[in-house]
């Protein structure tokens, strides 16, 4: 089974640089009108971690969902 992930945003830290959304292979992230990042399509996260690894503000976390629960 393909990996599934759960993404969360720490809004206090997000500066809206858009790096995570640009490089998300599933395009599940997008900027809100107030300039903070938002998870628009949470079910499609494949837990690749690219957003968390690149986020310069430690504002995004990915947790791997066990057994696709």
């Amino acid at each position: 089974m393909p990996k599934k992930g759960e993404v969360s945003i720490i809004e206090k830290r997000c500066k809206g640089c858009n790096i995570c959304a640009t490089y998300c292979p599933k395009k599940i992230l997008g900027l809100r009108e107030d300039g903070k990042m938002e998870v628009k399509d949470p079910d499609n996260c494949i837990a690749c971690d690219l957003c968390e690894l690149r986020c310069p503000d430690y504002a995004i976390k990915v947790e791997v969902k066990e057994n696709n629960e």
Binding site: K15, N18, P56, Y58
Partner: peptide, 27 residues
């Protein structure tokens, strides 16, 4: 889990939006 290595009360940091230094620090 990165959080245990941060001084959480100092975040968010002062670097500009999109500055690469944050990514270097987490690396």
């Amino acid at each position: 889990e990165l959080e245990k290595y941060f001084r959480e009360n100092k975040l968010p940091h002062i670097w500009c939006p999109g500055c690469g230094h944050g990514t270097v620090m987490s690396s």
